Amino acid sequence: MREIIDFLTANSTVFIATSDKGQARVRPFQFQFEQDGRLWFCTARHKEVFAQLQADPRLELASTAKDMATLRLLGQANLDDDMAVKRRIIENNGLVRSIYGAADNPEFTVFSVDHGRAVIFDFSGNPPKQYAF
């Protein structure tokens, strides 16, 4: 899990894929942090992605480093509207704070990926590293 967290911390822009009535949907997100083995992200309740994750929590995300090393992660979103996590994000992320203002904004919500499978691969010729968490 440490290598996944380190990769996401260094390459925090990820692209998350969800399903919308059988159609794949992909959009950029920002990895926030890991806490207690949970990978945290945030969004707004009015966005289509939130409705998609409510209907089908399965997701896949990908992130690529400057050297083209790539992380792919398959898991499920846990729509846990944790106020302490929301406060931490607002306090530490100026962009999110500029959008939502405060942790108690009713539109601001968070979700985590608590377990899943991941692979990190590059073009070195070495085999991909696979993880389950």
Rank of each mutant, 00 (worst) to 15 (best):
R72S: 03
F133W: 14
A65V: 01
F41K: 03
D56V: 05
T70V: 05
L79C: 08
N105E: 08
A69C: 00
F15C: 09
E60T: 04
V85Q: 09
Q76H: 14
I89H: 07
R45Q: 11
L59M: 15
A10F: 03
A55V: 05
Y131P: 07
R87H: 08
L74H: 10
D56F: 08
A69K: 11
S112H: 10
F123G: 05
R97K: 15
E60I: 02
F108Y: 13
S124Y: 06
V49S: 12
F31R: 03
E60H: 03
T70G: 04
K66G: 11
M68E: 13
L95V: 12
Y100M: 05
P106R: 03
S112F: 10
A44Y: 14
D56I: 00
M1E: 12
M1V: 13
I16C: 06
A17N: 06
F123R: 06
K66I: 06
Y100Q: 04
A102N: 13
A51C: 06
T70H: 05
M1L: 12
I99T: 11
F108A: 07
H115G: 12
A118W: 05
K86Y: 11
F121R: 02
N126Q: 09
A24G: 11
D36P: 09
Q130N: 07
W40T: 01
G75M: 08
G22D: 11
T64N: 02
K66T: 05
A118H: 04
A51D: 14
D36N: 15
D6P: 03
V14H: 00
T18I: 04
A51Q: 14
A69V: 04
H115M: 02
V110G: 08
G125D: 07
K66C: 02
G75K: 06
G22N: 10
F50H: 15
M83E: 13
I120F: 10
V119M: 01
T109Q: 09
I89R: 03
T64V: 14
Y131C: 03
V26A: 13
A69M: 08
I5Q: 14
G101Y: 09
R25H: 13
D114F: 07
T43L: 11
T70C: 02
I5E: 15
F111P: 02
G22M: 06
K86F: 04
I5S: 08
F133G: 04
A69P: 01
R87D: 09
G75Q: 07
L95M: 13
S112I: 02
F31A: 04
K47T: 15
P106S: 09
D104I: 03
Y100N: 00
L79Q: 12
A77T: 11
A84L: 10
Y131I: 03
V49A: 09
F29I: 08
V119D: 01
G116I: 01
A118E: 07
V113Y: 07
M1S: 12
L61D: 01
R97S: 11
P28F: 05
V26E: 07
F29R: 10
G37I: 01
Q52M: 07
V96P: 04
Q35A: 14
R27K: 15
A10S: 13
Q32W: 00
D104C: 12
A17L: 04
G116T: 05
E60F: 05
F33M: 02
K21R: 15
F33Y: 14
K66Q: 13
E60Y: 00
V110N: 11
K86L: 08
R27P: 11
R72E: 01
I90T: 08
T9C: 06
L8I: 03
F121H: 01
S63M: 06
A69E: 10
